[in-house]
Design a protein around this nucleic acid. Structure first.
Length: 922
RNA sequence: AGGACUAUAGCUCAGUUGGUUAGAGCGCUACCUUGACAUGGUAGAGGUCCCCAGUUCGAAUCUGGGUAGUCCUACCA
């Protein structure tokens, strides 16, 4: 074995072996455990959020697989309608082509080609993380089977009246030429202006002043509204405005939506281009004048001068023209929220079009109940409130998209505009008796990608067929996801699954935080602060990292800034930490918070932890290989105190890990493992094993017992750790297992260690605690008095009871070795104890004679520090005990505990003071 | 505007039903190449648990009110 752990050597090798051996497939078992992967975008590449999420799912999956559950992790990707279409369109653009040059069929062919060539990137990257989904069952939302499910769902919902087509105001993306749902619109505050215009009354008798952030929309105004109780304008309600530039007259109406306090208290109403105005337009039966075309340029509804102008051009023109007419009152700077498409980044327009909708309100009702009655539980629980808040105020879901890439809507229209929904044109014709003389054309639109994702838990298992997989693995056990897609995906899955399966899609939703950089900033390409998990695994040099982060930047000055920050933050680039260290870092950060700040210091610590494990294994193997470790369980074996102690500690760790995993507290699980392996097994147990193995006097049974414990505890610890660190555990386990009497092709399919409380030997625990106390006391003297570590000391013990004597007897060898003593013994009866540096373990005094030391002042200083600490603590305790109310009202056990503490501290204090005096008199 | 979350060591974070000497990792200081490991060992320093009030014998923990930050939802033209 190498002296240091080299992750790169083993990761690929083991992964290939696992996958090709079929270990990721369900292995049978009575309890089914299944997780459906939140399908990553097929155009995507792995980011830290994926890494975190996959690490958690994989830990759960490996844990349950080892516990003997029939475990399925269903992988796959979604077709990401807009994103994928954009990618391929950009490629065409490079050749000077648009998708229209190719035509629909040819274009879709191109997309499929792209998918075959480049769509597998993210699944390859998932493999690097050690993820163990059943790749043989990988699905894609555009697969034939899933497409069939989508079609079936659409048709059935349509027939049930839960899908309808309607002309509504939608969020229109003028760059992508499609409607998007409100979730795909991001509103950010931006600096804009508030233009105040004077609208002349039709009577010629004065004017009203209205304010707007979008002047061009005035061409589509169909009313001006005031508050019904606003005396300033009450007399004008019912009169008309002569709308400038248009020659139209529009009414002045009263509606309590108007805020009297804001601006002038008069609002121009443009029902076809504003969501609030749309509602008001419906209330007052106002005409809706659509003034835009698909590009958000002005259409023929506006006066000739403005036709064909882009909306922002038109804005300038309208302002200029109103100004020229003397109707521009003033312009104020104004901060407003501007809605932008999350894909295109352009300003979204409310736009009147025909679209398909899902009646979400009806579907939401059972979905709310499923959470209320506990069929679905969120972890952490507070996310249920977020879910309720959204679901109780849900709007109908616009599911049609004006794209080519996606599931085409199975609806046909005849010339009269009648709608026929069905599997295909022939089926529609047959069902409705439509002869060949009737021309049908299919709806051009496709469905929102989330529509197919909403079916994911059951469509991937073969629905609408009633497959054995559906029966076994649905509902799935747990959904692991970020809170950012509770609405997008989680809620919609629950609605769809309940409707079509009459069961929940999953029993638990584990909602994790979002990975941010060390400053708490969201990682984003434009900020240049993204970390690629693969770079953390393999490492990357500074130049390559800078190049990667600044590639394809739109703004060069941003690139310079990013380069500077990157050089500052990673002057050496990023080291190769390996997958196991990366995964363990994720777990250590997986607490209940909403933000996960990824600090590079953490991963380095866990790389060191891997190295620690590696070297502990090296030590164990060096001492066990070729030796009798009681592999067959037939030798005479004597277990030492340390053996019994570490076995008990292992049991407790096993229980703690299981508890943590069941509660989704991966931070606790990782902490417990780290603590056990490093601070107990390596720091103490391995050290305690040395005196036995290297002692010629020790019996063969004792040595065999120690070797057996060394190897078996390590073997179990590896299994315990495997779900979190799959690679190093597999590699080490292969060498360790045979010596522990275990066999198997892989650690992956070994039973998971289950802690049993009974195996904890409390007597051994107490003895080892005593031993540690004595050693720590001696080390403290050594450290604080600057005694060279190499110098052997003589230690004397004083004042102890019978148990101290027997403990010394049992542990003398270990003590000498670990505290570097050439002798340790009790002060004989009647013997005058020499002046000495002192440490206390309970009643027991540990003396290091001053003859061995040089520095009297150092010992006085050390004692003074100890005494001060004790005095402070003692006065605190006494303050408590002198408080009658405390003694009266606190539970007896608590009071008794304080009294015990008081006594112990008093005694210790007395001894230390005595020591202080003796040394001072030297 | 409404709601949620967060505030603990220089940094990143744990801290169960109120009773701990408030912990871990990283970083920091000193010493140490002792036969698994310098990606290491030993010892140590470092905290007004955001602030104020309250409940209680007792509050990092519970209640109320602030302050700061993050996010979500809804938006006033």
């Amino acid at each position: 074995m190498d002296k240091t752990f080299q992750p790169a050597d083993i990761e690929t090798r083991w992964y290939q072996q696992w996958e090709s051996s079929g270990y990721f497939q369900p292995q049978g078992g009575d309890n089914a455990f299944s997780i459906m992967i939140p399908p990553p975008n097929v155009t995507g590449s792995l980011h830290m959020g994926h890494g975190f999420q996959e690490a958690i799912m994989d830990a759960l999956i490996r844990y349950h697989r080892m516990r003997g559950d029939n475990t399925l992790w269903q992988p796959g990707t979604d077709h990401a309608g807009i994103a994928t279409q954009m990618v391929v369109e950009r490629q065409l653009e490079a050749q000077g082509l648009t998708r229209h040059d190719l035509g629909r069929d040819k274009f879709i062919e191109k997309v499929w080609e792209w998918k075959e060539q480049s769509g597998g990137q993210i699944t390859q990257q998932l493999r690097r993380l050690g993820a163990s989904p059943d790749w043989s069952r990988e699905r894609f939302t555009m697969d034939e089977g899933l497409s069939k499910a989508v079609q079936e769902v659409f048709i059935r919902l349509y027939r049930e009246g839960l899908i309808y087509r309607g002309k509504r105001l939608v969020n229109w993306d003028p760059a992508l030429h499609t409607a998007v749902s409100d979730l795909e619109v991001l509103s950010e505050e931006e600096q804009g202006s508030l233009w105040h215009f004077r609208y002349p009354l039709a009577s010629g008798d004065g004017h009203l002043t209205v304010a707007t952030t979008r002047p061009e929309t005035m061409l589509g105004d169909t009313a001006v509204a005031v508050h019904p109780e606003d005396e300033r304008y009450a007399h004008l309600v019912g009169q008309a405005i002569a709308l400038p530039l248009t020659g139209r007259e529009i009414p002045i109406i009263a509606d309590d939506y108007v805020d009297r306090e804001f601006g002038t208290g008069c609002v121009k109403i443009t029902p076809a281009h504003d969501f609030n105005d749309y509602e008001m337009g419906k209330r007052h039966n106002l005409p809706m004048i659509n003034i835009l075309d698909d590009n958000a340029a002005l259409n023929d509804e506006v006066p000739e001068a403005y036709r064909g102008l882009d909306r922002f051009e038109a804005r300038k023109q309208v302002v200029a023209d109103l100004d020229a007419l003397g109707l521009l009152d003033r312009i104020e700077p104004h901060t407003l929220k501007v809605p932008r498409g999350d894909r295109s980044g352009v300003v979204i327009e409310p736009y009147l079009t025909d679209q398909w909708y899902v009646d979400a309100k009806t579907l939401a009702k059972p979905a709310i109940e499923a959470v209320e009655n506990g069929d679905i539980q969120f972890v952490p629980k507070q996310w249920e409130n977020t879910y309720y808040a959204w679901m109780r105020d849900i709007q109908d879901w616009c599911i049609s998209r004006q794209l080519w890439w996606g599931h085409r809507i199975p609806a046909w229209y005849d010339e009269a505009g009648n709608i026929y929904v069905g599997e295909n044109e022939a089926a529609v014709r047959a069902e409705h008796n439509l002869g060949a003389d009737i021309t049908l054309r299919q709806d051009e639109d496709v469905l929102d990608t989330w529509f197919s994702s909403a079916l994911w838990t059951f469509s991937t298992l073969g629905w609408p067929e009633e497959t054995p997989e559906l029966a076994t693995f649905h509902p799935s056990s747990v959904l692991v996801t970020g809170f950012d897609i509770i609405f997008f995906w989680v809620a919609r899955m629950i609605m769809m699954t309940l409707h079509f399966r009459r069961e929940v899609p999953f029993h638990t939703v584990y909602v994790h935080g979002l990975v941010r950089d060390a400053e708490g900033q969201k990682m984003s390409k434009s900020k240049g602060n993204v970390l690629d998990p693969i770079d953390l695994i393999d490492g990357i040099d500074l130049e390559a990292l800078v190049t990667k982060r600044t590639a394809g930047m739109m703004q060069p000055q941003l690139a310079a800034k990013i380069e500077k920050a990157t050089r500052k933050q990673f002057p050496e680039g990023i080291a190769a930490y390996g997958t196991d260290a990366l995964r363990f870092t994720y777990y250590s950060l997986a607490s209940t918070g909403r933000d996960i700040r990824f600090d590079i210091g953490r991963i380095e610590g866990f790389r060191n932890f891997c190295n620690k494990i590696w070297n502990a294994a090296r030590y164990v193997l060096m001492n066990c290989e070729g030796q009798d470790c009681d592999q067959n369980g037939d030798g005479e074996v004597e277990l030492s105190l340390a053996d019994r102690w570490i076995i008990g500690q292992l049991q407790q760790t096993e229980a703690a890990v299981a508890k943590a995993v069941e509660a989704y507290r991966f931070d606790h699980a990782s902490q417990a493992l780290y603590e056990f392996i490093w601070n107990q097994y390596c720091d103490w147990y391995l050290e305690l094993s040395k005196p036995v193995l290297w002692d010629d006097e020790a019996s063969e049974a004792a040595k065999r017992g120690t070797r057996r414990t060394l190897i078996r505890v390590l073997e179990a610890a590896l299994r315990l750790l495997h779900p979190f660190m799959p690679f190093i555990t597999e590699e080490v386990w292969q060498a360790v297992a045979p010596l522990a009497g275990k066999s198997g092709a892989t650690i992956m399919l070994q039973p998971y260690p289950i802690g049993e409380g009974e195996s904890v030997d409390s007597a051994a625990n107490a003895d080892i605690e005593w031993l540690k106390g004595v050693i720590v006391g001696l080390r403290n003297i050594r450290g604080e008095m600057n005694i060279p570590p190499g110098k052997a000391l003589t230690a004397l013990l004083k004042n102890g009871g019978e148990s101290d004597k027997s403990r010394l007897e049992q542990n003398a060898t270990a003590l000498k070795k670990l505290a570097r003593l050439d002798d340790i013994r009790f002060v004989a009866d009647g013997e005058e104890a020499p002046v000495a540096a002192t440490a206390l373990v309970g009643d027991l005094e540990i003396l290091v004679p001053m003859a061995d030391l040089i520095d009297k002042d150092a010992e006085l200083k050390r004692l003074a520090k100890e005494i001060e600490k004790l005095e402070k603590e003692l006065s605190r305790i006494e303050g408590k005990l002198n408080n009658a109310a405390f003694v009266d009202k606190a539970p007896d056990a608590v009071v008794a505990k304080e009294r015990e503490k008081q006594q112990a501290q008093q005694m210790a204090l007395g001894k230390l003071r005595e020591q202080e005096q003796r040394i001072a008199q030297m």
